[in-house]
Simulated assay, not measured.
Amino acid sequence: MRLEAFVPLVTYPEANADAFAEHAVRVGAAIDAGLHALAIEADIPDTANVLSKWLLDTPALIRQAEAASRQRGAHLLGLLRDEAARIGVEVATETVAAPLAMLADAAARKARYFDMSLIGWEAGNATSRATAEAVVFGSGRPTILLPELSDISHFDHVAIAWDGGRVAARAVADASVFLKRASRISVVTVLDEKPLEEKDAGERLAGVLRARGLNAEAVPFHAEDCPIAETLQQTAIEARAKLLVMGGYGHSRIRDFVLGGATQGVLSDLLMPVLLSH
């Protein structure tokens, strides 16, 4: 059975960059997955009073904002279809309109029906971050964050952020499609960030992966005074890994997200493609 990846396209108030369309298609090609792209358009209610309608013509401003959202969604879907046709990736597309407060939740609900989600990430784009948080913690599926300026050409080297915990184990299982295709796997373990139940946890996982015929090695290191998210990403980048696999620590209460330190750091400053699993 072929994998199906969900691709939510945010359009308002901040839209995904054009590069995300190509990134998503390249991930689909890399793992032989079909794509289902959803353009999420803004549905803005007219709650203005008589004075604001007279002074600002609020209904006209709402119509303009909704039209811009629809145009951006159609543009992104067109780019994705064109790139998919060029590379040979199957893609289905649709649009949905949702109230502003429910845009990210609309993505999370839809994501539950697919094997994984691909999320575009641009520096300073609060809309794409909110969508990422909602999908990571609300879909029950792995989510791959794809930064605008990253190289998404291949995932031959995968790094795993490993502490021997449950969430990390879930992430490794969710990343199996990438691990099977990787020519090299680095199991990255931070030795001084928190107490580890097993001091040799990284080597144990690397050994298990090697027993399955995968080329894996343990990479223990000390974070020292650097933020854990930056350290993990920089270590993976220095090893020339193309994808970092890690557990998403935290939970959500409707729209109130409580994030672990590493998860918070990655969502704030994404330096490379990251698979987050919760």
Score class of each variant (00 low, 15 high):
151 D>A: 03
151 D>I: 02
152 I>T: 15
155 F>Y: 15
157 H>D: 10
157 H>F: 01
157 H>W: 14
158 V>W: 04
159 A>F: 03
160 I>F: 02
161 A>W: 01
161 A>H: 06
161 A>V: 03
162 W>Y: 03
163 D>V: 08
164 G>F: 05
164 G>K: 10
165 G>S: 15
165 G>W: 08
166 R>N: 14
166 R>H: 14
166 R>T: 13
167 V>E: 14
167 V>A: 06
167 V>R: 12
167 V>F: 05
170 R>E: 01
171 A>H: 00
172 V>I: 04
172 V>S: 06
172 V>D: 03
172 V>N: 08
173 A>D: 12
173 A>S: 14
173 A>T: 12
175 A>V: 11
175 A>P: 01
175 A>E: 02
176 S>K: 12
177 V>Y: 02
177 V>R: 07
178 F>T: 00
179 L>H: 10
179 L>E: 07
180 K>C: 05
180 K>I: 06
181 R>V: 00
182 A>M: 06
183 S>P: 06
183 S>L: 14
183 S>H: 15
184 R>A: 14
184 R>N: 11
185 I>N: 08
186 S>E: 02
187 V>I: 13
187 V>A: 13
188 V>G: 01
188 V>F: 06
188 V>W: 01
190 V>P: 07
191 L>P: 03
191 L>H: 02
192 D>R: 05
192 D>N: 05
193 E>P: 00
194 K>M: 05
194 K>Q: 06
194 K>L: 03
195 P>M: 15
196 L>E: 12
196 L>V: 02
197 E>C: 11
198 E>V: 13
198 E>M: 13
199 K>E: 13
200 D>P: 05
201 A>R: 09
201 A>C: 15
202 G>E: 09
202 G>H: 13
202 G>W: 13
203 E>R: 13
203 E>H: 12
203 E>V: 10
204 R>F: 01
205 L>E: 09
205 L>M: 09
206 A>N: 12
206 A>D: 12
207 G>F: 09
207 G>L: 05
207 G>N: 13
207 G>R: 07
207 G>A: 07
208 V>F: 11
208 V>G: 01
209 L>Y: 01
209 L>E: 09
210 R>I: 02
211 A>S: 02
211 A>F: 00
211 A>C: 01
212 R>D: 05
212 R>H: 06
212 R>L: 01
214 L>E: 08
215 N>H: 04
217 E>W: 00
218 A>S: 15
218 A>N: 08
218 A>C: 07
218 A>E: 06
219 V>P: 06
219 V>G: 02
219 V>F: 09
219 V>L: 08
